[in-house]
């Protein structure tokens, strides 16, 4: 019985840690790929509804800021 409880606890903890992992992936000459558990606040301080991953503009030229729209291909990033 004790052993069973121990296993259950460990499993919950692992799931939990997996969920709370947040990664910022730098795409060379491209956007910032954010995935995991995060919230995004706009320039007006209001929350922006997003799913669990986004590609954020890193070149400054997107017409759909803060999101990437592919403009980096012509504009470039100082990477």
């Amino acid at each position: 019985m004790m052993e069973l409880i121990g296993r259950l606890v460990l499993r919950v903890k692992n799931n939990f840690m997996e969920k709370s992992k947040t990664e910022f992936i730098i795409i060379k000459n491209g956007p910032l790929h954010v995935k995991g558990n995060f919230t995004l606040k706009g320039t007006d301080g209001k929350l922006i509804d997003v799913v669990d991953e986004v590609y954020l503009c890193r070149c400054g030229a997107s017409k759909n800021k803060p999101f990437c729209d592919g403009s980096h291909k012509t504009h470039g990033v100082n990477d």
């Binding site: 947040t22 954010v34 558990n37 919230t39 606040k41 954020l56």
Partner: peptide
């Protein structure tokens, strides 16, 4: 440690 990361633009 268990709450979401905040990204502020």
């Amino acid at each position: 440690t268990d709450t979401p990361v905040m990204v502020q633009v």
